[in-house]
Design a protein around this nucleic acid. Sequence first.
DNA 1: CTGAAAGCGCTTACAG
DNA 2: CTGAAAGCGCTTACAG
Lengths: 346, 346
Amino acid sequence: MTTASKTIKPQRHSRASGRVTIVDVAHMAKVSPMTVSRALKTPALVQQAARDRIAVAIQQLGYVPNQAASTLASAKSQVIGVIVPSLSNAVFVETLHGIRDSLDQHGYKFLIGESHYSPDKESQLISTFLTQAPDGFLLSGIEQQESLRHQLATNNIPAVRMFDLSPNRNDMTVGFSQKKAGYSMARHLIERGYRRPGFLGAQLDPRMMKRRAGFRKALADAGMDSGIEVLTAAPSTVELGAKLLGQLLQQTPDCDAVFCCNDDLALGVLFECQRRGISVPGQLAIAGFNNLPWSAHANPGITTIVTPRYDIGFTAAHLLIKRLKREPIEKARIDLGFELAIRAST
Amino acid sequence: MTTASKTIKPQRHSRASGRVTIVDVAHMAKVSPMTVSRALKTPALVQQAARDRIAVAIQQLGYVPNQAASTLASAKSQVIGVIVPSLSNAVFVETLHGIRDSLDQHGYKFLIGESHYSPDKESQLISTFLTQAPDGFLLSGIEQQESLRHQLATNNIPAVRMFDLSPNRNDMTVGFSQKKAGYSMARHLIERGYRRPGFLGAQLDPRMMKRRAGFRKALADAGMDSGIEVLTAAPSTVELGAKLLGQLLQQTPDCDAVFCCNDDLALGVLFECQRRGISVPGQLAIAGFNNLPWSAHANPGITTIVTPRYDIGFTAAHLLIKRLKREPIEKARIDLGFELAIRAST
DNA sequence: CTGAAAGCGCTTACAG
DNA sequence: CTGAAAGCGCTTACAG
């Protein structure tokens, strides 16, 4: 092995990692490292023959670019920090899929953080992510801490906020009106003839509270009682839905419809109705929120608000990339709307 | 502003990023950059007074370490690559939580990839992740492509495999016996007196096939018909469960129990039974797999196998960290077992 | 307990 | 279309 001679006289301070680098590729392809770099990033600027030799060398050597070196030299990490409230909620997983599909197309990677609906936790995650020098952020909701806004501004890192629409025209936001969605559902129940609709809310995050506000407004606008509700800060689960229904019926026995702040709660309500022998929608109508994959297939199918979470992720990532590439942005505030899916439960 | 003089004579090749670096902190704290680095990584080696001055400087300047520089210099990224089949399945999200809780304690971050049960996709994700120079990998299942094993070996990157137990004693694996789990469920149904249990399988991934094999073996051991089943490569959903039940009953009308390869399918079967007026478990018993959060709260509660996915994630990450720190490893193959949760559906 | 020197593997900013 | 030089912000490997 002629390469053995390389190790005969180790240099002081030598830290040869043994890793294949751009220099190795350059040697084999008889070009400079700079040309290899160009062949990788901007192939159009490299002569075809050189490109071919470089491709062969990369193949032969099994060269893998070192992202850390690239990030350090270029001050661009190609990383986007993404904060969602929770991965336990299928809604946000679908948003992530939208983000991934959008980011993949442009060579960006992303870091995922779960805020668990806590602004403190969110700020803390951002601080941790900052060490990775992300090029941008995708955040959930529009209610970030002032210190966080300041931190992003100071580091000049753009952010797009998802799931809601900011009243501030300068903020980049992609979502829909949570309040209008709540209003729509109340209107639907009213039009169906329900006279005593109640609201079941968990988590109590800002978006949920906006849905509730819309729901209450529609009832008040119709001159109906808008105060029938049970709220809890606990995370929503099927189990919780069953429990909250019990509380609601105890407090308002003549309640004839219930709007759950999400489908998980609605499923729990449905099972509890089955256990109690309450017919749905005969004695009690059930409505949910989000249109989770199973909601159309429950028995009965659950009326719900269809939210565009995949598109929110895809569009938000797309908007952020446009901004990073300094392309012109026509609209910083993108309303993707929602739909009402009426099914047998109401 | 006296600092303005700094910009009077810009150097050629100057790329001052404006970012606060370890050098800035060192100046303010009147120490060398090396001492700042130590104060951050191994504070015990730095005198208290210096540490205090450094802490103040970091605070004042808002210094954030540059991970890319650290990774490049140390050849340690503090990043773990994690591949799970899908984030749409709550099981894997819980595993991620276990991984996060374990990794957080040791300052590791992680990259998440979804293989969608495809070995090709898995290999592709690993290649992409390699660019980030991960210190280790956490993989799902034990059936990786040979090229992937080779790639990990070549780069000398340790990996822990989750959810199954490798027959190879050298592989680090954390999971449980999928086959025994399937066997247990069949034994339970047999003991309950069911004579014509069938199997509903989706996705057809290796672990699902092992559950099936265990199920069939128990039936065969008991001299019963082990061929009652409907399989499909489609991903499991509630909707699919309903559809598969239809096929099963058409093909085997006297089937009196059904073991679903996971709880989502079981929920679909339950709703379909309700729609068809089939009493559960009177006319048909239903069993699932995984014990998803709602399965105990369905109507009736669904009998299922409780799988230790949070612990699998936590333990696998812990094992990997031990390996990375070159601590002695007593057991490379950790069987976390499973439990049978018997509920009203059987 | 502390620091000067060298190097990690890329890309920027020129210059041809 | 190509390349030499310098630098990105840390840590290693010494030497005190």
